[in-house]
Amino acid sequence: MPSVLVENYFRTEKLPQIWCPGCGHGIITRSIASAIEKSGIDKNKICIVSGIGCSSRAPGYLDFNTLHTTHGRALAFATGIKMAKPEIKVIVIMGDGDATAIGGNHLIHACRRNIGITAIVYNNSIYGMTGGQYSPTTPKYDKGTTAPYGNIDKAFDICKLAASAGATYVGRATAYHASLVTSLVQNAISNEGFSLIEAISMCPTYYGRKNKKGSAVSMMEWQKNSAINISAAAKMSPEALEGKFLIGELKNSPEPEYTNEYQKIIDRLKKESQ
């Protein structure tokens, strides 16, 4: 039998998962389960929603109310769930293409509304399910099957995008920093409003191979060496931060949550009619 965590929160009969050897998605999924375990919420009151892509297979392995939707639309489906039944804790798992390309409009508006949803973006900088096309987070000049001469698109910074669109809790971690994924997701779940956690994953099969990044282990070494915790970064020079990216809690500024605001309207109308 598997570990207590896996036994309690996974649909073990669906394991082993379908992801490629060395794919970071399994690590992040386990970290999310660990965050849910720590938050102590009733499994029946949690709904996990995903779109389409490699990351979107995660909910199928998790033992909650789970919804595998259409490409890019996970947040819109999740919005309906949260709005119709606010007592449900809604967690949305998306990939980088899912969340920021086809689903970009839903992402910025879910942030703007500050609706009580925890969004976790598994960012592996590539479209994996379709075989390695460049995504909105593929670094400039990197290669994908649809960017054989190098990608000339500028990459999105998902955390900055979410924070400026109005998400009230934003954080970033990596598959290497799996414990940090857990603590950030745990904080995100306890934030009443919209939270976004970018979890940097790795795709050794497509992104790694196309861009000569080596094995899953070397991609994780890169995560280890390139990620700087925001608290440490404050004491570092701009030169020292060159080529690095920030991890940790990047924004935490609670604001009134959307479904609570709507409930206030319902309550006010009820009072007025009495």
């Binding site: 039998m1 207590v4 082993p16 992801w19 998605h25 399994g26 386990r30 970290s31």
Partner: peptide
């Protein structure tokens, strides 16, 4: 190892006082 295994294929033995799954 347990923390970073993408496949949940290695994990710590539960300590004696730990709740069994």
């Amino acid at each position: 190892c347990e923390l970073r295994c993408p496949d949940y294929a290695i994990y710590l033995r539960r300590k004696k006082n730990e709740k069994q799954g």
